[in-house]
Design a protein around this nucleic acid. Structure first.
Lengths: 221, 221
DNA sequence: CTACTTTCTCTTGCATGCCACAGGCGTGGT
DNA sequence: ACCACGCCTGTGGCATGCAAGAGAAAGTAG
């Protein structure tokens, strides 16, 4: 019946998963809100089955909670979970920095230098929006540059649970935070370039902690 | 990730997920083998639907691969993936050791000491089977003792992908490895007890690397 | 005997229908 | 007025049916 969507997007489920996940991460659906199988099925003009399977997957990703016979709800990380997520973030990014440092000359290093150049410009121009994008790209480059797919996958899962992209802006709203953050990025890259893995990890971890502090300060305001 | 094992739904699916996952981890179904929806549905006397949803979950856990229109297959980690998994293992266990050291006096420390006592006995008696169990419990205690649920969840996912419990025996089959391993365990616990987080992490990581080397040597034989 | 083509079967993807349970709401009893 | 009980609606859990694709097997030509 509704079936014939062009092969353009590939499988129906891939589309559903990507779109619904995006909505949760981008905050279009609030935590705690219920996601009705039926409503989404009608909206996307598919049956409940693929929607159900999408929910199952998002549940194992930690983005929704399925309460049998009651409904499916967007999860809201508890205070404790947020702490744990940041602990993991610090852990993984620190490790990624070290791994990247050990790899020697790889394309990601050039991209990081380019990122820093543009970040300096954005900070000088006080363009917070642009700088937030560059911060995301920076961390992304560190992770991808570690060249460990498992690490990358677990990292992405964690960031999704944190809805991190929405948080960056908050932490950067603290006075002086952008320039401080930019300096820390420079330090990290410098240590990576000099192949000092241990120090790179240490400084990266300190940077993550600082960013977390700025975020919490921003939230309290 | 999905920490939801056991009785999350208490229903048919919980049983399916637990049982099929167990079969994969215990190696009852070989990597590469196909898992037929229909066959499993009939075996458990349910319809294909819950089996399908089980596959979906196991896929995001990295235990099976669903090839559309072809079948669902037990994944066999590539050489590269195994390396990556061990890198993650080293990372997470090292971090767990540090976190545990920072926590002060917690019940897990007593359990670790008891574990070491029994391990000493098993090593003296050259009881490899028993020692293998104790090794698993040791690592489990370190992870749980870190008191970070996210870390624990991600760790479990990784170990499942490695089918680690089957590998322990192999690595312990190396001559002298059990007593060496036992000594390393003692060192780690000692550093944790003295609240030296940094050193605990470092030694724990070294221990993981050593265990990996022993495993690879055992596989080559 | 080999290489190509065709069919045929077996697999999953998706749609649909029924059922059991949770929880809200109204009704009747006190 | 208050409380308890039971109905009623909405939700997901599961069974089943149909269709489309992939791969193997069979058939055919050279």
């Amino acid at each position: 019946m509704g079936g014939n969507n062009g092969a353009s997007t590939g499988s129906i489920q891939a589309r559903l998963i990507a779109e619904i996940r995006r909505r949760i991460i981008d905050g279009e659906v609030q935590p705690g809100m219920s996601l009705s199988e039926l409503a989404l099925a009608e909206e996307f003009d598919v049956s409940r089955t693929p929607v159900r399977e999408t929910f199952k997957q998002l549940q194992t990703e930690g983005l929704v909670e399925i309460r049998p016979r009651v409904g499916t709800f967007v999860t809201a990380p508890s205070r404790r979970e947020i702490t744990e997520l940041f602990e993991m973030k610090e852990l993984l990014e620190g490790a990624a920095a070290r791994l990247l440092a050990q790899r020697g000359r790889v394309p990601e290093l050039d991209q990081l230098e380019e990122n820093l150049r543009q970040a300096d410009i954005a900070v000088s121009a006080d363009d917070r929006q642009r700088y937030a994008e560059l911060v995301e790209e920076f961390h992304e480059l560190i992770i991808v540059g570690a060249d460990n797919r498992k690490l990358e996958g677990h990292y992405r899962t964690l960031m999704n649970q944190l809805a991190y992209s929405r948080l960056v802006t908050t932490s950067l709203s603290q006075p002086g935070r952008p320039s401080q953050s930019d300096r820390e990025h420079h330090n990290v890259v410098e240590l990576i370039m000099s192949k000092d893995g241990d120090s790179a990890e240490q400084v990266m971890r300190e940077h993550v902690r600082a960013s977390r502090r700025a975020l919490l300060a921003g939230l309290r305001t």
